[in-house]
Write a protein that binds this DNA or RNA. Structure first.
Lengths: 337, 337
DNA sequence: TTCGCCCGTCGAAGCGCTTCGACGTAACTC
DNA sequence: GAGTTACGTCGAAGCGCTTCGACGGGCGAA
């Protein structure tokens, strides 16, 4: 039916093993032979059978990616990350199998134990994630996006969210602001101890304390209505507030809107810094001073780490991508008075 | 190393083939034997090797899903659909391999020809999609989400977007509206002839004509700024306008906002119907009369169709999910005068 | 009672590839 | 010039599973 390696071998006048070596490069093959083999491959349209390859080599060249679908996570960020993982994986000659969070530990165990995948990427890690023990004992390497309470024996990578939170506050402090607020992720994100949200909070609080600022924190549901309500309450309860850090992609526009309604000009009356993807920060009515969430880079690096582990190379347990703040039009010196 | 079928067989005191048949049910196995085999499997923690299985059975039990990442598509809808596909696939004992649009035809050919996947699901189909010839000749079954110019020899499924467009206009007509506008997808979506956008447009126009209404059409970029601009222009150019159909999830809230700014109360002054996921329609400041985009059902049905094709059963070339309009608070009788 | 049939099980032959050891040849070393 | 070493290639042995044909025993039909 379909052309197999023996067909190529016959056509090229060599043995199947030679074809295999020509393809993998695991043994030296003369230039002429290689050329002949490659010509035959092209001519016959040969494609190695993935299953046969996986069986013989005990490598499937497939990665599992666990994507979150829980409330409170911002879908475009996840999607951007997923696409980046797939693209990076392809660059390393791997494919990506999609596993839903819903499948839980059993799902991870299944794809790992059946040798469907060689390695795993897990997103949306919680502080005490139930999957951690499993990942530690699994015989396949894995990389986590996000940090659990202890990264011992694991490989974790994430943006340095703590630094991101600090950076925002430092920036506001540098502009003379004294009273700042954090508009955070939806409450459920904190409740289930998703680490990135907590780390932002820590950074925010620590920096505010360090600068001797008054600070306040408000989780916020990912709906326009919630945004309006939070904006209003924030100003009512903290009339002296002049700086806001927003860590909630979904409500950025509604917030800008709400502040505008409340008669505040940005940045003249109120400075705003955001933690969000670059394109979001620049596509709103006011270009936002922001710390970028680098989904693409995260995906690339996660895959790179996984490849190293598959090669048996040592990798650091923790990798924090440095946070960078880009000043834009949404922050300014604290209004006089 | 890992436990294999021969280990199970020995442990259960049967032959490997018996274990295989006990697992697949392809031949009758006595209840006692089956029980013994199952006990051994549990006890040893046996997991069949996916690659070996694929090789021997020439079935990988993996589906390829091609996800779009182009501008103008609404990410949460895609994500919801993707999750639904994965969940449904799992219910049919299949896994899902993620393929990016970017990989194009070569990517499809690759996963199909290497027998990595048994079948393909392709989203975001264009009227003259370059992948169509390939899909027609591929030896693996596929299902398209969306309709190309001709579905001959293919299997396509989608919401009946034409009916959805009509339904919205019919609803407005029934409420006495005479001048209606369509706020559509971003221009690039129309330019590349993504069929669902065009079909909404056709339905909208046809129904408006049928009702003798004055109608106008405005594509709209997926940014709040664009939404504001479109809202303004719409009212300026069509002062008599009282009904709007929005087919652009990303700008629903900004539009509501803009209309409000322009002094219009919804639905007292302006009626709005939307084509969007149910949860979006109900989570805005005004619950929107809408035709739901049933991502979940689409995913389920797409997978169901694929399974039928894998079983060799005949399936219809075209499947249109019926559109349903749910009246909510955003539409009302045309204001007098 | 005997033949044929079906049920439940086994053995063996692959599925298409990778990889290991072996082998001949050519290029070195000293 | 004998002994290595490296290169380029081949043959064969699996990888772990499915599946096909075969086979013995129990049963109903004749």
């Amino acid at each position: 039916m379909t052309v197999k390696i023996t067909d190529v071998a016959r056509h090229a006048g060599v043995s199947p093993s030679t074809v295999s070596y020509a393809l993998s490069g695991k043994r030296p093959i003369s230039a002429e032979t290689r050329a002949r083999v490659e010509a035959s491959i092209r001519e016959l349209g040969y494609r190695p059978h993935a299953g046969a390859r996986a069986l013989a080599s005990s490598k499937s060249n497939v990665l599992a990616m666990v994507v979150p679908l829980r409330a409170g996570i911002h879908v475009p960020v996840v999607m951007g990350f997923a696409v980046s993982v797939v693209t990076s994986a392809r660059a390393h000659d791997h494919d990506v199998l999609l596993v839903t969070q819903e499948e839980g530990e059993e799902g991870l165990r299944r794809v790992a134990d059946t040798a469907l995948v060689d390695a795993l990427i897990v997103m949306d890690v919680q502080l005490h994630d139930p999957r951690l023990p499993l990942l530690r004992t699994l015989d396949r390497p894995s990389v986590l996006i996000g940090f659990p309470a202890s990264s011992d024996g694991l490989t974790c990578i994430d943006l340095d969210f703590r630094a991101a939170g600090e950076l925002c506050v430092d920036h506001l402090a540098g502009l003379g602001h004294r009273v700042v607020g954090l508009i955070g992720s939806p409450p459920e994100v904190y409740v289930r101890q998703t680490s990135f949200a907590q780390r932002v909070l820590q950074g925010f609080t620590a920096a505010a304390t360090r600068h001797g600022m008054t600070s306040t924190v408000h989780p916020c549901e990912a709906t326009p209505a919630a945004a309006r309500e939070v904006a209003e309450r924030l100003l009512r309860e903290h009339p002296a507030l002049t700086g806001v850090v927003v860590h909630n992609e979904a409500v950025l526009d509604p917030l800008l809107d709400a502040f505008e309604h409340l008669g505040l000009r940005i940045p003249a009356d109120l400075s705003i810094t955001a933690l969000c993807p670059e394109d979001l920060a620049t596509s709103l009515r006011v270009p936002l001073t922001s710390v970028a969430i680098p989904s693409t880079e995260l995906g690339e690096q996660a895959v790179a780490l996984l490849m190293k582990k598959l090669d048996g190379a040592p990798v650091p347990e923790a990798t924090l991508l440095p946070a960078h703040l880009t000043p834009r039009a949404s922050t300014a010196r604290r209004p006089a008075g």
